[in-house]
Design a protein around this nucleic acid. Structure first.
Lengths: 226, 226
DNA sequence: AGACACGATTTCGTATACGATGCACGACCA
DNA sequence: TGGTCGTGCATCGTATACGAAATCGTGTCT
């Protein structure tokens, strides 16, 4: 009944493979390991003070999730997301996240809605600021608040994963296009109204989806057209 | 410039980890390893004439994909899909497959449509038969024909994966409910008509989604209600 | 008879070792 | 001088080995 290792908070409870997985993944998500970064087994093993075996397993897992690419006898590197893949991923997100939000809408507490509105106000306040990263983070949080209560865990997982796959690139959406942020905030308002009015699920879903599609096309036209 | 191992067709080109992955996965998909089957490292290693290391990596990969579950210091087993997970997965499929079908509909060749109609006729002809497995396979093929040309590979991948995750259970949909198969065939016809008439993508999507939802609710009510 | 404790066995987790592969650099030849 | 071939190093791929955890069976005590 005694805790296995009192000194180590809870990390020791995980296998080294899992530790490696979590750590590498954290580095990727945080951006410390940018796209294309080479994941050399021995280096990682040294950094984490373990042998290469758990590292290899972690990398396998990350490969299966699409966060890293892998080439036989060459090695792994953090996945690059080119414009095409970006579009594909965003299309997937527009579909799955909207469905998740619709499913969640009936499970949102008044508290959730209040939180969402508050986040959106903070977004509105910060639209002019030169802190794109923070705004993008807020935007993510806004949407996560709305789809979080989705009772289908599988759907939630897909949404999360897809965002993670985009890596650092996911921050280019909200702020990349000059006038877009303000429009987004307005669309957020409308979405909240719909949910609060208990609009049909299809309408909620459609609202989220078109919100995403709008943002994506705005982004694409501004980068490609310019 | 010489082929590495003339005797071995092409399997030798893959790493043992990959061989193990493919093989185990094949067993699971084919049903040889049913839900709950214990994947013991040494056994698999012996069967495939390799050490346990590649096996472990393969299992990691399969775990990440959700085909097997894993418990530390206990081992891996083929994932069980209970009724709840089944519902969740089918809900995901209804969302993603319908989107994929809609996206594919503009890329379908007359040939694809002909093929789909032909498959549906074979389905119609076999509705009464006592070969549920074959019918289910045909049903899968029908839908695959329609979403296959979807230009978004990521979306396709998600659909495929989700079906695979259901494993053997995916065969219980089409034939489990007595009257359902005939209805499905009719809905297939309607779907083909919509596509051929170049109906708006939303209508195509909605048709596929409701088709899936209908099948699911029919299945759930017949199993739970009875 | 039933429950608990303890030991044997199975199986997993990780380290280490060594062969295989790819890549980069430099030498050699035309 | 340019290109090609060979050599060495970095890194990956897999096998083997050993310690650790869990499970199962057995014996004992109540």
């Amino acid at each position: 009944m005694s805790t296995p290792a009192p000194g180590v908070s809870s990390a020791a409870a995980l296998s080294k493979s899992q530790q490696a997985y979590e750590w590498i993944r954290a580095q990727i998500v945080a951006g410390s390991f940018g796209a294309g970064y080479r994941l050399v087994l021995t280096d990682l093993a040294d950094q984490l003070s373990m042998s290469v075996v758990p590292i290899r397993e972690a990398i396998r897992q990350l490969t299966a999730e699409g966060l890293v690419t892998f080439e036989r006898n060459v090695g792994a590197r953090v996945a690059r997301v080119d414009a095409e893949q970006y579009r594909w991923a965003m299309q997937v997100i527009s579909v799955v996240e909207s469905a998740a939000t619709a499913l969640a809408s009936r499970h949102l507490t008044p508290d959730d809605l209040r939180t969402a509105r508050e986040i959106n106000e903070r977004l509105r306040a910060g639209v002019g600021d030169a802190a794109p990263r923070a705004l993008s983070e807020l935007n993510q949080e806004f949407h996560r608040t709305l789809y979080g209560p989705c009772p289908n865990p599988r759907m939630l997982e897909l949404v999360q994963r897809e965002w993670e796959r985009l890596g650092a690139m996911r921050h280019s959406i909200f702020t990349a296009v000059p006038g877009r942020a303000a429009i987004s905030v307005a669309e957020h308002d409308r979405l909240l109204d719909l949910i609060e009015a208990e609009a049909p699920l299809e309408e909620v879903e459609e609202a989220v989806r078109s919100h995403r599609v709008n943002a994506l096309t705005a982004f694409l036209t501004s980068t490609r057209g310019a």
